[in-house]
């Protein structure tokens, strides 16, 4: 028996909206601690990982660990039948569920849907705990804007960290450009820029993955970029009170 109720169903919709550009079919894992999802994009280049803690739900029960294979596209079709202010409950009775039930509740309306599940033999990847040598926290809409703008100039974006801040740069056929974001300790947390740099990094990434993933900026006003030289970076959007949505992407190696 599994039941998870989102107080803010709009949050679940934003999560699916953010990952639908990157992953097609995913295994939703549910257990006593909460719900998690880990899936690679279709080209196996990037990895998306979602973690939602049971404490963040209005109601949460999961007697036995469950794996529910679902198509993100079909999940979205079901979620499109809900309102952004609805409370959304996910539920299944069986131990080996073949469908996942959804209840959308608003003040004057309650809807019930069932999504057919699929069996996906997707292997999980072990993400090692890593001490990152550069960790940058900055406004998510600023990061989204920089990636979109510089992505117009070149498909690869350079990121260079220092104790003063983080520099994004591009060198393309049409020309080049750079954007340096300085640290600031403004009292408004959503505008803060913090850099913990034990070792500076200078890495280059395929910015199209950032642009696909940055739909997740609707989930959080801040984004955390964790990097180490020649290691995959993590883009993390903290989901208030619930958990986080992460994208892992390896840097491009200059040939």
């Amino acid at each position: 028996m599994f039941e998870a109720k989102f107080e803010d169903g709009g949050l679940f919709k934003k999560i699916v909206e953010a990952i639908k550009e990157l992953v097609k079919n995913v295994n939703l894992e549910a257990n006593g601690t909460g719900i998690s999802l880990q899936a690679m994009d279709t080209s196996h280049v990037a990895l998306v990982a979602l973690q939602l803690n049971e404490k963040g739900f209005k109601k949460y029960r999961c007697e036995k660990s469950l794996t529910m294979g679902l198509s993100i596209e079909n999940l979205q079709k079901i979620l499109k039948c809900s309102g952004n202010d609805d409370q959304i409950t996910l539920r299944t009775q069986d131990e080996e569920p073949t469908t996942l039930s959804f209840t959308f509740e608003s003040k004057n309306r309650i809807s019930e849907f069932q999504l057919n599940l699929m069996s996906l033999d997707q292997e999980q990847l072990g993400v090692p705990d890593t001490e990152y040598s550069s960790v940058v926290r900055m406004p998510s809409n600023e990061f989204t804007k920089i990636c979109r703008e510089l992505g117009n100039i070149n498909e690869a974006i350079g990121i260079e960290t220092s104790k003063e801040g983080i520099k994004f740069y591009v060198k393309g056929d049409i020309g080049e450009g750079q954007v340096s974001v300085k640290i600031n300790d403004t009292e408004k947390p959503e505008e803060r820029v913090e850099c913990e740099v034990d070792e500076p990094v200078n890495l280059s990434f395929a910015v199209r993955y950032f642009n696909l993933f940055n739909k997740a900026s609707a989930l959080s006003s801040q984004v955390i970029l964790s990097m180490s030289q020649d290691q995959p970076l993590v883009i993390e959007y903290i989901i208030e009170e619930m958990g986080s949505l992460k994208l892992y992407l390896a840097p491009k190696i200059n040939d």
């Binding site: 690679m40 080209s43 196996h44 280049v45 990037a46 990895l47 292997e123 999980q124 990847l125 072990g126 993400v127 090692p128 498909e155 690869a156 280059s204 395929a206 290691q231 995959p232 892992y248 992407l249 390896a250 491009k252 190696i253 200059n254 040939d255």
Partner: peptide, 14 residues
Amino acid sequence: QGIQNPITMFFKKT
């Protein structure tokens, strides 16, 4: 524009 390695090169299948 450089070589893009897949994430599976860094994270092993469990």
